[in-house]
Design a protein around this nucleic acid. Structure first.
Lengths: 253, 253
DNA sequence: GCTGTTATGCGTAGACCATACGCAGAACTA
DNA sequence: TAGTTCTGCGTATGGTCTACGCATAACAGC
């Protein structure tokens, strides 16, 4: 977590302060042989290649040709490194909404951008997040999302709530999708066969009398057709945006 | 993950089959000194008391007065134990909707039930879930949720999607809430002071010119008032249900 | 240029963790 | 009674994070 408090408020770990550019190198002592960004980049490279589980301090150090313990001069703990990895992994935010976009078009574009990041870097979903965002790029994403709601009749608190709602949805959807992908790889099943296999398994386990609704869903073959995962994403997103739209209309009227 | 496949489809790990009551004790050999449920209960007890991080095989074994390796006669791996812990941790599902409830009232009650479970057992959120539910109680929750949508004009696939949307929202909301609680404990800050402290920290970090929308939210004091977390939950849930309602109306009309 | 201060790189070691393997003995069948 | 099979679990392997302390490098001030 972030934060001990002193008179000037909560205090950031050194490595995160340096991500904000708030830290100058002390004039004395030997020149550092590495840098926080180099370490974070190496860790991200490992995660991209072999998944988050492969990210150990020794593996990252090896990637850099350094000794394990050398890293601890730059990051306070592995948790801190993970936080910085998330910031780098998300990358720069997609930018403010285009001028011609209304709030819905803007948020949709924003949502797809996050969706795309999580699709390409599913290890981001496995990082145990331990608090609200405090790193520069993540706050950039938040800023750009909030801007989409500029000009709506929502209160500031409501804008934040809406954004939380949407980003939560995106993460959740991405988590489910990546679980299917990882599960199919682990079981050696074609990704397209994963949900049908799951459906058959559940059908064998449940008694129709005790699980009538579930049985009906399975009988309808819902899990057998492998529809485009993007359709599923669009479905949920549209439901949520419909709900937000209803709220905005109420506030406007 | 679940599943190797043979002719009869995916196959369950033994301990999970036994959770479905599909396994009789072999007639030979010494009588087992423990049981899968006893192990799972002990693990749940540890998680309830000291969090998921405290759940190690040796700690669970100690809880039972057994040797670490003895557990592996009952569960195939720690992952399997975690899966069973989730099933036990969720507990029995809240039951089918009351007859007088419409879909919205039913789903609202269902959502609050899951919300309550996750509030009391926040370690459930930290279990890395590795696939769709295959344990009895979890499928019971799914069944009861689906039943709330019986009688609506939604297709079976849409019902499932709606349920996924809602349960994802609940988990997400609970995750955020528990992060605040855990963060405040870790930092030694009053829970009610957590978000204000976060607000002050971000306000110090960001330049208003580069983060105008975020700055506006902070200036509005959104994070300073500690509103009832239940209100936040209600807000998001109502947004989503509004969206679902719009869909149902469209399908009906 | 010398000395004191401070930071870096990193080796060692400790405290955990999951779990593969194999053996002794218990409880059943034939 | 002999054979089979399953349980309990001791031992050992290889992995994790990270606390600590030492040698060395680079600067500041005299």
């Amino acid at each position: 977590m972030a934060a001990k408090t002193d008179d000037s408020g909560p205090v950031l770990p050194p490595a995160i302060e340096s991500a904000w550019g708030l830290r100058e190198r002390p004039p004395k002592g030997p020149r550092p042989g590495m840098s926080v960004p180099a370490i974070v980049d190496a860790a991200v490279r490992v995660a991209d290649a072999d998944g988050l589980a492969a990210v150990s301090m020794s593996r990252v150090a090896k990637e850099l040709g350094a000794a394990t313990m050398a890293l601890y001069r730059y990051v306070g703990s592995k948790d801190e490194l993970l936080r910085l990895m998330v910031d780098t992994g998300y990358g720069p935010s997609p930018g403010p909404p285009a001028p011609q976009d209304d709030w819905r078009a803007g948020l949709t574009r924003w949502a797809w951008a996050e969706h795309e990041v999580l699709r390409q870097r599913s290890w981001l979903l496995h990082v145990p997040i331990s608090g609200p965002p405090i790193t520069p790029q993540l706050l950039g994403w938040m800023e750009d999302g909030l801007r989409c709601l500029d000009g709506t009749a929502l209160g500031e608190g409501e804008k934040m709530s809406v954004l939380l709602l949407i980003t939560g949805y995106i993460r959740n959807e991405a988590t489910l999708t990546s679980q299917i992908a990882e599960g199919s790889r682990a079981a050696g099943v074609e990704p397209s066969e994963m949900m049908p296999a799951y459906g058959r398994l559940v059908a064998r386990l449940i008694e129709p009398a005790r699980f009538p609704a579930l049985h009906r869903v399975l009988s309808a073959g819902v899990l057998d057709q492998d529809d485009d995962p993007d359709d599923e994403f669009t479905f949920g997103l549209d439901r949520i945006l419909d709900g937000v739209e209803a709220l905005i209309r109420r506030r406007s009227g």
